[in-house]
Simulated scan of single mutants.
Amino acid sequence: MSSLNSFLVDLGNVGIGLLLLTVILLVGAWVFSRLTRFDDKKEIEKGNEAAGIYMGSKLLGLCIIVAMVSYSSSDWLMMLAWSAVGILVLCLVYFLVDKLLPAFRVCEEIEKGNIAVAQLLRCIIIGISIVVGTLLM
């Protein structure tokens, strides 16, 4: 019977984790969409692949941070707190990249559908998310 109880506790933890991850991703998507100078949802609905890559990369980066935090801690509040830090870090990355690439503006290029810029940002976002997540372990 103890293995059944353990299974049920683990199943409950998975459910709680998925619920929290959903909330974190919704908040992250909302914050990230407020940061851009264009309407992410409309651009993605229009089929702007660059906008989809960019938003997907930010959400994947957030998932990486959440995964690494949840791996090292079973405290749900810490997961939420570090997820908020992850959202702030990814927002900071956006501002830094936008300022450090003087040849073009990130939002303008994504809105124009520039997939090369989206791919560059994808690599930067995922790389930084892995580093930040590792530091939180």
Score class of each variant (00 low, 15 high):
Met1Val: 06
Met1Gln: 02
Met1Glu: 03
Ser2Phe: 04
Ser2Thr: 04
Ser2Arg: 08
Ser2Cys: 04
Ser3Asp: 04
Ser3Phe: 08
Leu4Gly: 07
Asn5Ile: 07
Asn5Asp: 11
Ser6Asn: 07
Ser6Leu: 06
Ser6Pro: 00
Ser6Thr: 06
Phe7Ala: 13
Phe7Cys: 08
Leu8Tyr: 12
Val9Met: 08
Leu11Cys: 06
Gly12Pro: 01
Asn13Met: 10
Val14Asp: 07
Val14Met: 06
Val14Phe: 01
Leu18Ala: 14
Leu18Asn: 12
Leu19Gly: 14
Ile24Gly: 11
Leu25Cys: 06
Ala29Pro: 01
Trp30Ser: 12
Trp30Tyr: 13
Val31Gly: 03
Phe32Lys: 08
Ser33Glu: 07
Arg34Pro: 00
Arg37Met: 04
Asp39Trp: 01
Asp39Met: 02
Lys42Gln: 07
Lys42Glu: 05
Glu43Ile: 06
Glu43Trp: 03
Ile44Arg: 14
Glu45Val: 15
Gly47Lys: 08
Glu49Lys: 05
Ala50Ile: 14
Ala51Ile: 08
Ile53Asp: 14
Gly56Glu: 11
Ser57Phe: 01
Lys58His: 04
Leu60Ala: 14
Leu60Ser: 14
Leu62Met: 13
Leu62Asn: 09
Cys63Arg: 02
Ile64Ala: 10
Ile65Leu: 15
Val66Lys: 05
Val66Phe: 13
Ala67Ser: 15
Met68Asp: 08
Ser70Cys: 11
Ser70Met: 11
Ser70Thr: 14
Ser70Asp: 10
Ser70Gly: 10
Trp76Asn: 04
Leu77His: 08
Leu77Tyr: 13
Met79Ser: 15
Ala81Arg: 02
Trp82Cys: 15
Ala84His: 03
Ala84Lys: 06
Gly86Tyr: 12
Val89Ala: 13
Val89Met: 14
Cys91Lys: 02
Val93Asp: 00
Phe95Cys: 00
Phe95Asn: 03
Asp98Pro: 01
Leu100Asp: 08
Pro102Ala: 05
Ala103Cys: 01
Cys107Pro: 06
Glu109Asp: 03
Glu109Cys: 02
Glu111Gly: 01
Glu111Ser: 08
Lys112Trp: 06
Lys112Val: 03
Lys112Ser: 05
Gly113Met: 00
Gly113Pro: 00
Ala116Cys: 00
Val117Arg: 14
Val117Asp: 11
Leu120Ala: 14
Leu120Phe: 12
Arg122Tyr: 07
Arg122Cys: 05
Ile124Glu: 11
Ile124Ala: 07
Ile128His: 00
Ile128Leu: 08
Ser129Ile: 04
Ile130Gly: 11
Thr134Asn: 07
Leu136Gln: 09
Met137Phe: 11
